[in-house]
Design a protein around this nucleic acid. Structure first.
Length: 594
RNA sequence: GGCCCCGUAGUUUAAUGGAUAAAACGAAAGUUUCCGGAACUUUUGAUAGCAGUUCGAUUCUGCUCGGGGCUACCA
């Protein structure tokens, strides 16, 4: 039982005895005491006065005394208004620290038997990854790590939107102008190579529109009249018909893209246990929709399209199958969901997709629920806001500024520059140095993205780029490097003796640090429940900041007494351990020297 | 038009309905003896507006004003 549970339970029992009243443990709110007041934990008694029928102060006083009687961990308490501030004994905290240090799996929960399928990334294969994918991938990967720590069995999957008119556009431009160039022959990364031909296509469209006799003012309308667009449409038809030459070209170009993507995935450290391809699922779903017709939960409109009526749920009527019986996006998503359930028998299915598609996922979940699939209750859309430039939304037309690979390269370059400036890596081999630049640069980038709550939009200013001071990844990494240096000199982790645990008197910061570490497992749990890595990110920062404060206030290796040295080294070692654990949940490596 | 999300110091972010709203960046000043100065200590400054719910509201409700998104037999 955790301390909070113990205190809640004791409070419930005390109320039962003293007031003959039954309250639930959930009704007892316990917070960490505000920094401005003395105490470790605070029980807010306002909600309890209704039961005690005494003033908040009297109730708190009574409860405080009773808790001291009942438990053996409370040293003292004070009452301010309706707040009961409890101070635990130093030996409780030291013992707690020792227990944490001895428990290698502190912060990871035992398997809960629940399976999760988590879909993330979901790129189109006609252009390179951009900053939005970056946010998606970092969120997806980190969420998966957090869920695993919370005891879930997680399978990460990706879905490639590898077909359609956009891909055909690149193919047409390539066929017309490339002269059989390849990523290898040009030295261009495969996904960028594909993207370049997509850009080329659009350039030609613009030219051909100019040549049009009576071009419509609407750009989309005008595009449809251009020869190159018509070629792309023909190509799409040929692809759908399975024309061998077209399919071969399509496959060749997509393989280039995958090679490029995989390079980026590897650099970022994200991975997938299974890949899905739209080209294999785009026709699925028809049977499922017909099943809905039979069950009378979907209906056929007069025009022949099959739709679901979601007006009772506050949404609209939504078409699920075209009048000609072919699938649309939602149709295949329904089918893919069912397919995955058959494959994985998961309890939860999480989709990491931008908030533009909030509506889509509401429909998806409701439609599956109407079909009677119980597992649809476990569908969760991990929705995140778009990344915007200071001037508004990143458009692909704005080009380079939003490109994921460029952004990564830039941040690695800055990491190298700053590290060299500081000159702390003497004795590093060239390879060690470049690994370090990567660790720090990616640490900065990942932290920058993950520290923000997913539903909040991120304003990203490429000019100002990413910082390495203050509330950043490198700051946390640096703190660990500093701790690592101390631990090397101390000769490794220490175990505190029973005498020290019993008699040591903690300073304010030391106490603060232990309380923070003690909270780590609650933070992991909360982050998993909320699907929110920013909880972990902010926690890690807090821990690092508190440690630095401690570090500056308290001599560690040169502490005045052996007891102080023992406690402070133990404190340092475990802080390092938890920093590493937390950062791992964010997908961020932590160097021992930097 | 309808629906959804967001609005906190100059800027970027925090705060299960709890105490005097917390940090970082920026700006200004400082850290002789010290284990790593990517650090630490000061100073500076904010809940868009108006009501309501209650012991208590950044948080919940309603309205107003701003910003974004969705509302395709596109993906």
């Amino acid at each position: 039982m955790t301390l909070e549970q113990t205190l809640k339970q004791a409070t419930v029992e005390i109320f039962n005895q003293q007031f003959n009243a039954t309250i639930s443990p959930e009704a007892v709110t316990i917070n960490i005491t505000n920094a401005d007041h003395e105490g470790d934990y605070t029980i807010v008694v306002f909600p309890l006065v209704r039961v005690s029928k005494k003033s908040p102060e009297q109730t708190a006083e009574l409860l405080g005394n009773a808790l001291i009687e009942k438990t053996n961990v409370i040293a003292k308490f004070n009452v301010i208004k309706g707040f009961l501030n409890l101070t635990l004994t130093d030996s409780y905290w030291l013992q707690r620290l020792q227990n944490i240090a001895e428990n290698a799996s502190f912060g990871t929960f035992p398997a809960n038997g629940q399976k999760v399928v988590l879909e993330y990334c979901g790129p189109n294969t006609n252009k390179p990854l951009h900053i939005g994918h970056l946010r998606n991938m970092l969120l997806g990967y980190s969420s998966s790590e957090i869920l695993k720590a919370a005891g879930y069995d997680v399978t990460k999957v990706n879905i490639y939107n590898d077909r359609g008119i956009a891909i055909c556009k690149s193919m047409v431009a390539y066929t017309r102008y490339a002269n059989a160039a390849t990523p290898q022959s040009t030295g261009i990364k495969g996904d960028h190579f594909m993207g370049d031909w997509y850009v080329k296509f659009n350039e030609i469209v613009t030219e051909e529109i100019k040549a049009l006799p009576n071009a419509p003012t609407d750009k989309d309308e005008a595009q449809k009249l251009t020869p190159i667009f018509k070629e792309a449409q023909e190509l799409l038809l040929k692809w759908e018909a399975g024309d061998p030459e077209t399919v071969a070209l399509w496959k060749k170009m997509n393989d280039w893209v995958y090679e490029g993507f995989h390079e980026t995935f590897k650099l970022l450290g994200v991975d997938f246990q299974k890949d899905y391809y739209e080209s294999e699922t785009y026709k699925l779903g028809r049977d499922l929709v017909n099943e809905g017709l039979e069950k009378n939960v979907f209906f056929k409109r007069k025009d022949g399209a099959v739709a679901v009526d979601l007006t009772p749920e506050g949404l609209d009527e939504k078409v699920l199958l075209r009048a000609d019986g072919t699938s649309i996006y939602i149709t295949q998503d329904l089918a893919t969901a069912k397919l995955r359930h058959e494959e994985f028998d998961m309890d939860k299915m999480i989709y990491v997709v931008a908030n533009e598609q909030d509506y889509h996922f509401k429909v998806l979940k409701l439609a599956l629920q109407k079909l009677g699939y119980k597992w649809a209750d476990g569908i969760y859309h991990l929705s995140y806001a778009l990344v915007e430039s200071p001037t508004g939304r990143f458009k692909s037309r704005e080009g380079k500024t939003a490109d994921a690979d460029d952004l990564i390269a830039e941040v690695l370059r800055i990491a190298e520059e700053k590290t060299k400036e500081l000159g702390k890596i003497e004795g590093f081999t060239a390879e060690e140095a470049s690994t370090l630049y990567r660790t720090i640069g990616l640490g900065a980038l990942k932290y920058f993205v993950l520290r923000v709550n997913p539903y909040k939009k991120i304003i990203f200013n490429p000019e100002e780029s990413i910082d390495f001071h203050g509330h950043t990844g490198p700051f946390i990494q640096y703190t660990n490097a500093r701790i690592a240096a101390i631990m090397r000199k101390a000769g490794g982790a220490v175990t505190m003796s029973a005498d020290v645990i019993a008699a040591y008197s903690l300073s304010e910061v030391e106490r603060e640090l232990i309380i923070l570490m003690s909270e780590y497992e609650n933070v992991v749990k909360a982050a998993a429940e909320k699907y929110d890595p920013s909880e972990i990110a902010n926690y890690a920062y807090n821990l690092a900041r508190t440690y630095n404060k401690f570090y500056h206030e308290s001599p560690i290796l040169s502490a005045p007494t052996e007891n102080e040295k023992q406690v402070r080294v133990a404190l340092s070692g475990e802080t390092g351990v938890i920093i590493k654990k937390a950062m791992k949940l964010l997908g961020i490596d932590v160097p021992e020297k930097m």
